[in-house]
Design a protein around this nucleic acid. Structure first.
Lengths: 160, 160
DNA sequence: TATTGTTATACTCTATAACTATA
DNA sequence: TATAGTTATAGAGTATAACAATA
């Protein structure tokens, strides 16, 4: 099913630059590794300076998943519980999250993001998108189509 | 110039899944950001446990650029000179790099990677490529072609 | 006098072990 | 007795300031 708004000839030009050997899993892996790590590293730089990667990761999880316990957050980030206690304490003091009581189990704590925390996440995403969008504007439509397709494929790969 | 080994109909199928709106810089940026950061994060996990990201970065720079001074390494990684002194000392003690004298300027120090250091870098790359290649094998040829094209585009973006 | 690198010191982040409260 | 979270303490990593050696 080929969209009429997207004739195949708009895609063909960029595909012509790639040689068959570059598509072999072994060869492609090396090229893709460099490209992904380098771009991601550059993009990760586009964030607020007064928050660490670990802290941002917690805020992002809370935005995506809703309120979570410290234990769940620790497991998600492959970090030990005491480290997460510290991270959460820092975020509480910064007013970005709040601690609350669990509905049924009084041992547990529920961490909830605040309005300021949501704003922080939104702002970081906005910065990174702006950095990326600025570069995407200089590409051809065919190149952007390729990246849109690649994004879908990469999401599947990362999830596997 | 379209390669005979790569007829365009092999590429068209994957492009049909992408809608025009997804190729607008603003929209694409958001999708691409998530896909890149998620995949890169997963891939970065595939490394030796007894070396940090900062240490690996130094080894990688030395493999790519040849011997460098601590000052050059510090600037490259956006780190302060004393921090690089510490990192280099750790790597020297681990036998992965060695300190040497500068040819003409006796204030400067030249850091050179050792055979063990090169092995460490090779091993990490091998792990990451293996992880990636395993996932690439399950893709269609058209999808791998898309990723090969995307890799080229991303390298340009990261360099800009 | 300026530059390169190191040492001294402090702060942050993370980990393990021990402790408190609750189930 | 087991579990969730915290506190206590120690080990890396990085930063600023002060210092040594050389240009």
């Amino acid at each position: 099913m080929v969209s009429l708004l997207f004739p195949t000839h708009a895609v063909a030009p960029s595909s012509s630059a790639v040689k068959p050997a570059q598509c072999r899993p072994g060869t492609l892996a090396g090229e893709l590794r460099v490209a992904l790590l380098r771009t991601a590293r550059r993009m990760r730089m586009e964030r607020s300076d007064d928050i660490t990667d670990g802290q941002y990761s917690v805020l992002h999880a809370l935005v995506t998943m809703g309120p979570l316990t410290p234990g769940a957050l620790a497991e998600r980030d492959h970090v030990q519980p005491p480290s997460m206690t510290r991270t959460v304490t820092t975020l509480v003091e910064a007013g970005l999250v709040s601690r609350g009581e669990h509905a049924t189990d009084r041992r547990q704590v529920v961490v909830t993001i605040t309005a300021a925390g949501e704003r922080e996440v939104r702002e970081t995403k906005r910065r990174r998108d702006a950095w990326l969008a600025r570069r995407l504007k200089d590409l051809t439509l065919a190149e952007r189509t390729t990246l849109a397709e690649a994004a879908e494929i990469l999401r599947r790969i990362a999830a596997a």
